[in-house]
Design a protein around this nucleic acid. Structure first.
Lengths: 121, 121
DNA sequence: GTCACTGTATTAAGCGCTTAAGACAATAAT
DNA sequence: ATTATTGTCTTAAGCGCTTAATACAGTGAC
């Protein structure tokens, strides 16, 4: 999986968000075993403690479960994953809308702006 | 102006962003005098030093200018403001699109999601 | 000329995040 | 049975952000 860490926010929060997205999108399939803490930390280029913190938080979201010595696996609950996916997507949409409003854009202008962003890809 | 500060990101960055949006949207009009550092800090509920830091950064964006002892005023350059508004709006759109993609959504699904968010307002 | 207000600078302290290095118990693999 | 791997925990250090409390020079109003 690809990691993208910036310096302007706590690293463990960014790791958490990206892990959430990876599970919610199915990049890590339901029931699939996750790489270990040390392996994930090496991938992301962060300290294992920081990744451990992100994974511990992820667990409170109910998206993964831990078997003490056998690693972590993505939950089997496809319903929970789908629900998380919807919630995360909706939050992003609302954040975009709020940013657009703060800039004085109307809903129509926000929609058109998104269309423009898609066109420019 | 309304301030919205959360605990999960550096305060001065949030202040900077909200000041940028206020100027870009015209909430503070071109040429208008801004409240003083202490006043703005009181409004936002932060330390004057933190607000000062945000304002100093804002200045590097070219949206305000400082007259040492006569306070700060929004730039007269309407072009620069319009340009900043476009750039900020576009960035938000791109961020939303990236988040949607990370969740496995297509462009069409992202657009529909935004429409749903607008409907739910 | 005095006074209040402006942006700016300084020092100190506290806190959270991150890294580093290492240790432990439980378990799977051999 | 031994070995390697698992998640977890601990201690220490460093760094940036934030607050607090002042202080200063320049300027406009009176």
């Amino acid at each position: 999986m690809e990691w993208n860490i910036r310096a302007d926010r706590p690293v463990y929060l960014q790791l958490l968000e990206q892990l959430e997205a990876a599970v919610a999108s199915g990049a890590y399939a339901p029931g699939e075993r996750l790489p270990g803490v040390r392996e994930l930390a090496a991938q992301a280029g962060v300290n294992p403690n920081t990744m451990q913190r992100a994974l511990a938080e992820l667990e409170t979201r109910g998206l993964v479960r831990t078997q003490r010595t056998a690693g972590r696996t993505v939950t089997d609950d496809a319903q929970a994953i789908a629900s998380a996916r919807r919630a995360l997507a909706m939050r992003s949409a609302r954040e975009f809308l709020a940013a657009a409003h703060a800039l004085g854009l109307t809903n129509e202008e926000a929609a058109e702006l998104l269309a423009a962003a898609i066109r420019e890809e």
